[in-house]
Design a protein around this nucleic acid. Sequence first.
DNA 1: TTGTTAGTAGATAATAGTTATCAACTAATA
DNA 2: TATTAGTTGATAACTATTATCTACTAACAA
Lengths: 144, 144
Amino acid sequence: MKTREEVRALFRAKKVPLTHQRLAVYEELTGRKDHPSAEALYASLKKAYPSLSLATVYKTLQTLHELGMVARVDSPAAQARYDAIVETHHHAVCAACGDIQDLFDPRLDRLPSPSAKGFQISGHSVHFHGLCASCAKKAGRSSK
Amino acid sequence: MKTREEVRALFRAKKVPLTHQRLAVYEELTGRKDHPSAEALYASLKKAYPSLSLATVYKTLQTLHELGMVARVDSPAAQARYDAIVETHHHAVCAACGDIQDLFDPRLDRLPSPSAKGFQISGHSVHFHGLCASCAKKAGRSSK
DNA sequence: TTGTTAGTAGATAATAGTTATCAACTAATA
DNA sequence: TATTAGTTGATAACTATTATCTACTAACAA
């Protein structure tokens, strides 16, 4: 977890003005272990910052993403989800509820590089799909 | 490439009425090597089937997806892209133009199964990201 | 500390992609 | 060929996201 001063330094290094709103969005995201959507972040922040606008959350996430400070997880649930962890890692996505879980496994970080004609590959991510613990339990119950 | 009779049998096996529209959408998709969006398919089909509705293309793709007859590739370009290949394979996605390329590499089909607490994993897919041949060329030119 | 300015926030309109609705039609069965 | 459940086409509605524009604020210099 980064201290507020570290965050401040990070923004300065990127030469991007640090506003209260940006700090709030970034801290909220780093403080969470789920992968909230823009809307979900907005809902959480609204309590502490009643004047915050949803558009600002969107713009801030976009900015942070361009700066490489947050990662974007494209979920099948149409709504983009964000992740404060930008280091290489992978995800397990629940097909039922859309829940996303982080996976850290160095064995997945280096994969055989495939032959994609002419493609200049800069990275990869592995998406596991299936059912999360609670949805698997529900599915088990209802099918019996 | 499936014959029309094979396609017909496939639909019958799934107990889904085979309409002209469904056949057209499915054949168009299997006949293409790119990963068209609903809109792109609609544009192609409109010439041969002027009365076809975009809503029908969406519904048909959804139906085919539920039946496991087509795969859905969630692209970062907001628009969902479809793939007639449902066998396990992976993708390279161009960060610049959104182009998606199929990758077949059995080494990627069996990955070490990660420890996702309680997650019941049913499959996975690997997304490589980078620049496709033509975008890489363009990027090289403009940065010099 | 204050003044200046480039860039940002908030409010809201606009847009893009997708889904819902519903009357008219059609594929599949008898 | 008649029946009926399910589908199509047209379009309205909806959801997520982006654009626009004016007032505001962070960052820097004096």
